[in-house]
Simulated assay, not measured.
Amino acid sequence: MSARKPPTERQRRLGAELRKMREHVGLSLTEAAAIHRTDKTTISNTESGRFGVSADRVRVWAANYSCPEHDYVDALAEMARERRVSTTQWWDEYRDAIVATSLDLAEMEHHATALRGVQITHMPGLLQSEDYTRAVFEQTVPPLTPEGLECRIAFRMRRSEVLDRAESPRCTFLIHEAALRMQFGGAKVVSKQLDHLLEQSERENVTVRVLPFSVGAYPSAGSSMHYACGPVPQLDTVQLDVPTGSTFLHSETHLANYRAMLDRLEQLSLGPERSRDFIREAAQQHGA
């Protein structure tokens, strides 16, 4: 018998939402099992993402929990349906070569209806040129093998293809001036990266806004983050970079705090046109 694959972040999220629904009405695992006519082990494994669940069962459990939010339940049922269909996605090709949290990040971006993010010292991953990406990954500790380096670069380039889809997510990237000044790969690489950034900012679905040094203090200074909007606000996700890969947050408090932070940073940032002028000036300085 083949080993069961560990659940993805999206699968764990579905289970976590079912757990929140149960806890919201104050039911224990034993009480929920009696209502659903199953056993508490099944419920526990489903809530942890270890067991799959059908779309029909999601709807039955939601009804048993008296959940009134139909759009939310429909979105959860669709997540359950996706797992049952279990089609192979492009990131599955990298399952034995890339850390699981990076695969989860690609999956999150694939399903997002909109993406928002703030970067302090690096260009947003989806807007990086290949040479810039190479320069970033060459600083990895411990160093990547030549094969590992090429794999990481290829994976990041594949991630950026989400912007090319017919129904691609609308993206807003807030980039601190520090990221424009960092010399990853040297002035020539950075100059070309900034030209690439300007090209990407012309996409209809991409907005780039700069946070200049003159802004001074701002919320969560020093922290980069990626915010993916789901089909309903309850299914939004925050992704943060950590030394081992990524961590994902989705509690109501986290989502509210990070939405407020992004709203505040957008208010502080330069508008899209002024940001493009600012990036052009930075590119000229690197190329001088």
Rank of each mutant, 00 (worst) to 15 (best):
C171S: 14
S224W: 00
L103S: 09
A256R: 15
A75T: 10
V99G: 02
R181Y: 00
G222F: 12
V215W: 14
V190H: 04
F278Y: 12
T145L: 07
L255V: 13
R37Q: 15
P272D: 05
L197A: 04
V136A: 07
D56Q: 09
E138F: 03
N257W: 07
R95W: 02
F278W: 03
M79T: 00
N257S: 14
V190G: 05
K192H: 14
R134V: 07
I279S: 04
E107R: 10
R50T: 13
I43T: 07
L268C: 10
R12I: 06
D96F: 06
L180S: 07
V85N: 00
P231H: 13
P142R: 14
D92R: 00
M182E: 07
V73I: 14
R134M: 08
G49A: 04
W61R: 01
T101L: 03
V118Q: 06
N257Q: 14
F278V: 01
P146Y: 04
T133N: 02
F155G: 02
E109Q: 11
R50N: 08
C67I: 10
E204F: 10
Q183W: 02
S86Q: 11
R95S: 13
A217S: 15
R159Y: 03
W90M: 08
A256W: 01
G245A: 09
L211M: 14
R170E: 13
R259V: 12
Q193E: 11
R12Q: 12
R81G: 08
G49T: 08
P231R: 13
E78M: 05
R12G: 06
E266K: 15
S275C: 05
V242D: 07
G222I: 11
W91M: 00
R95T: 12
T88C: 02
I35M: 06
A100V: 11
N205E: 13
G148I: 01
A34D: 11
C229H: 13
S44M: 11
A154I: 01
Y72N: 11
G230H: 05
L255K: 09
V85Y: 00
D71P: 06
M123S: 01
T172W: 13
G271I: 10
H226G: 07
F155K: 01
H286P: 06
D92P: 05
S54F: 00
L262Q: 04
E23R: 08
E266Q: 15
G15S: 09
S168I: 06
G185E: 01
A288F: 03
R83H: 06
F137W: 11
Y94K: 00
D195G: 03
L255W: 02
A288Y: 01
E130S: 09
L163C: 06
E281S: 09
R276I: 03
D164H: 10
L249T: 01
G148H: 00
K20T: 11
L126A: 01
T113N: 03
A283F: 02
A260P: 04
T145A: 08
E9A: 13
G52A: 03
Y132P: 03
D131K: 04
R83L: 09
Q128W: 01
S246V: 09
D195E: 12
L18S: 03
F278E: 01
G52P: 05
D236P: 04
A256C: 06
R4I: 14
S44I: 06
R50P: 02
W90I: 11
G222Q: 05
A283C: 06
P243D: 10
T207L: 13
Y132A: 07
